[in-house]
């Protein structure tokens, strides 16, 4: 089956990002297709490479990046939600005159249309986080 995944909660405070990751990984391992993982609301905070959790804890962002590299997974962070919350890539940094960017490898910033497209293209859109 072809799935799209929507992540609406930030990492660590709630388990939604973990559940989304485990679902995505399990689906891929079972041979399903993940059309896209879309990060919205505080979910965009999954995409910062600057998070530094304790060594003995899972690193949620690095885990997404590794999964993306392994499976050529499309990880999309909503631009409007990201701008509000300070998740920024090199292009956005330049466009808004910021002095840094923090997007993690394997993530890209794009528009909400990518979420609608994910709903259209997939057999099922699965939401994590309320």
């Amino acid at each position: 089956m072809k799935f799209s995944v929507l992540v609406n909660e930030g990492p660590y405070q709630h388990e939604a990002s973990d559940s989304a990751y485990h679902f995505t990984k399990a689906a891929l391992e079972k041979g399903h297709e993940i059309f896209r993982v879309f990060f919205y609301h505080d979910g965009v905070n999954n995409g910062t490479r600057l998070a530094t959790p304790p060594q003995d804890d899972r690193n949620i962002t690095q885990r997404w990046s590794a999964l993306a590299e392994q499976h050529n997974l499309d990880l999309v962070v909503c631009v409007a939600a990201a701008q509000r919350r300070g998740i920024i890539d090199a292009d956005e940094m330049k466009r808004h005159g910021k002095d840094a960017n923090n997007i993690a490898p394997g993530f890209r910033i794009s528009g909400l249309g990518q979420l609608i497209e994910a709903g259209i293209q997939a057999d099922r859109l699965i939401t994590f986080g309320d």
């Binding site: 409007a80 249309g113 497209e117």
Partner: peptide
């Protein structure tokens, strides 16, 4: 942010 999705989605 729900309203933002609805407005963008309308183009589809």
């Amino acid at each position: 942010e729900s309203l933002e999705v609805v407005l963008i989605g309308a183009a589809f």
